[in-house]
Design a protein around this nucleic acid. Structure first.
Lengths: 124, 124
DNA sequence: TGCATTGTTCGGGATTATAGAACTATGGAA
DNA sequence: TTCCATAGTTCTATAATCCCGAACAATGCA
């Protein structure tokens, strides 16, 4: 099994970051990792935003987040521990990631609060 | 020819915005539209970031930007005038778009400044 | 050694993106 | 009017990506 690839921070691009976070599952995972203060393993997210994600898909999602430079993954025994690389990214691109995560949280709040008032919630 | 669709601002999602701007051509176009103070037409971008884009592809790119809620397009005679919807988006998602555009500009500066020092620039 | 747990890789079917060709819409010029 | 030039859109076929089940690899423990 090939070792995990983590890009060095100067190779990280805005486009990669945006692409990684443009997926509803990945942005949910990332927001959770950013928000929690202990490392999260992958299986935590087998159920995310009311959807069940197959673990092969989940593995791909983590790979995308990792190779975009958004998270750092480290093996601890049988599980993988993931932490965000926000600090590094903030030095290079100030307020990029925080802007995205804040917007995402706002959107989540709105969705929750609005479900009663709105006629029909959109599915995807 | 069907009329252009512009989503109302409350239907705009973070994911759509990130997806739209995760493409190198689209983010370049959008940054240019945001930075200029007069409306830009599509053909301005037949050549963007040292690449020639076929106009059918360009049309698709504008459609993506438009349907993500990032730009407003209006016909003026034979041409289409595009302006950003930053103000509206900022009200809903403060500092999302500005964070992205600033990061993108930083990246452009770095790329220009670093070309002499770096060994080889990556192509895509 | 055997097995449970966690995650990766492989392979295909489904979806999405790209770009050439044909088309539409508008504004002049003849 | 009719014709043509310009600016974009739509259609279509190919190419690239994404998704997920099945098989596999790595680790820890009984």
């Amino acid at each position: 099994m090939r070792p995990l690839f983590h890009p060095s921070i100067e190779d990280v691009t805005v486009e990669q970051i945006l692409h990684a976070l443009s997926d509803p599952v990945r942005v949910a995972i990332f927001a959770e990792i950013v928000g929690s203060n202990c490392p999260q393993n992958c299986s935590t997210f087998l159920s995310v935003s009311e959807r069940n994600i197959p673990k092969s898909t989940l593995s791909q999602h983590f790979k995308v987040l990792r190779e975009a430079g958004l998270i750092h993954s480290e093996r601890h025994g049988v599980e993988m521990r993931n932490v965000s690389r926000c600090q590094e990214i903030n030095e290079r691109f100030p307020s990029l990631v925080s802007g995205i995560v804040n917007a995402y949280k706002l959107q989540c709040q709105r969705k929750r609060g609005g479900n009663e008032k709105r006629k029909g919630a959109k599915k995807r």
